[in-house]
């Protein structure tokens, strides 16, 4: 039996809220050497050999699931994918029963995407396995936040003092929340820009500025993180039309050029070209969108590696139903 060791992150990664600047930097620094592994001939190291990881996706996702799967396989973990179609999820099994089943199968780690905010924490409090949140409702998507931070750091150096504006549907975005918490922890200045119907109430009280016009946001920011506008938001009446959204809030080459500034443009994907971002921006020199994808694998490898040290003491507490 191995003795208790604790990971620098604790048992789980549920969100970036509450992580210290040091913890976030540890993840980003750890991701650096993992970038190189993906360049090797044998893109695999044995560090998680014998560990079992379940990718539990209650919502459809391709890129996040694939990115986690690459990360897991490159660390030599054994992985099982469970997605909502065809699993007991649709047969009405409750989350707590799913958790108990995973526990009974001696899973080491669970990567979960779920439609309800707080679901990752719910699971983390109930099983001894490490839980990594791959997106819970509108709450957080911490590995996306981390890969955005890593990409910004790669291109602009230390995050501290940078001005980052998140543009678009912040209200429904777990990516936005993870970015806000992570960026603020590292000392960036953060603002949001979008139609007021898509900005959360009280956002200013979270220490975040608000720009009504995307042109003003571009004058201010060093970095733009452009969020996907879910098409159902238009059906929900949050914006009158996609054309109007693009015309007023779209990140276009003309608007970027008008600033005369060298902005960095991120997008968590998948993009709606011609809605929130124009193709000549997505494919242009400002864009680091493909770097984000590459960094996604490295950051997820770093998180898996850091959590994998295991923390049996905390796991035991979680098993007893206590705080972990």
């Amino acid at each position: 039996m191995s003795r208790a060791v604790s990971s620098p992150l604790g048992k789980d990664l549920v969100g970036l809220e509450g992580l210290s600047a040091d913890q976030i930097r540890t993840i980003l620094d750890t991701a650096e050497p993992f970038k190189e592994i993906s360049q090797r001939r044998v893109k695999k190291v044995p560090v998680l050999r014998g560990k079992t990881i379940v990718n539990l996706f209650f919502e459809p996702s391709t890129r996040t699931r694939v990115s986690f799967e690459f990360a897991e396989k490159r660390l030599s973990a054994d992985t099982v994918n469970i997605s909502s179609s065809g699993s007991s999820v649709v047969k009405g099994e409750t989350l707590v029963d799913t958790a108990r089943n995973l526990e009974a199968m001696q899973i080491d780690m669970v990567v979960m995407r779920h439609g309800s905010s707080g679901a990752a924490r719910f699971l983390a409090e109930r099983i001894p396995s490490n839980v990594i949140n791959a997106g819970d409702g509108r709450h957080e998507h911490p590995t996306q936040g981390l890969l955005d931070l890593l990409t910004i750091r790669d291109h602009r150096g230390p995050i501290e003092g940078l001005k980052v504006c998140i543009v678009g549907d912040v209200l429904h975005s777990r990516v936005a929340r993870s970015n806000i918490f992570g960026l603020l922890a590292l000392g960036a200045e953060v603002a949001v820009c979008g139609p007021r119907t898509l900005l959360p109430v009280g956002i200013e009280e979270m220490g975040v500025g608000v720009f009504a016009r995307v042109e003003e946001a571009m004058e201010w920011a060093d970095v733009l993180n452009v969020l996907r506008l879910q098409l159902e938001r238009m059906q929900g009446g949050f914006v009158p039309s996609l054309r109007e959204y693009n015309r007023i809030y779209g990140v276009s080459r003309a608007r970027l050029d008008a600033t005369g500034r060298d902005l960095l443009v991120l997008h968590p994907g998948p993009m709606n070209r011609g809605v929130e971002i124009d193709s000549d921006v997505a494919d242009g020199p400002h864009s680091v969108i493909l770097n984000q994808v590459t960094n996604g694998v490295a950051v997820r490898m770093a998180v898996l590696y850091l959590l994998a040290g295991g923390a049996p003491d905390k796991a035991e507490a979680a098993k007893q139903g206590g705080e972990a």
Binding site: T30, V45, Y305, G309
Partner: peptide, 15 residues
């Protein structure tokens, strides 16, 4: 990343 004692000593953040 090739060590066999991750579970005993925990991860080393500096690789």
């Amino acid at each position: 990343l090739y060590r066999d004692d991750l579970a005993e000593v925990g991860p080393r953040p500096v690789i």
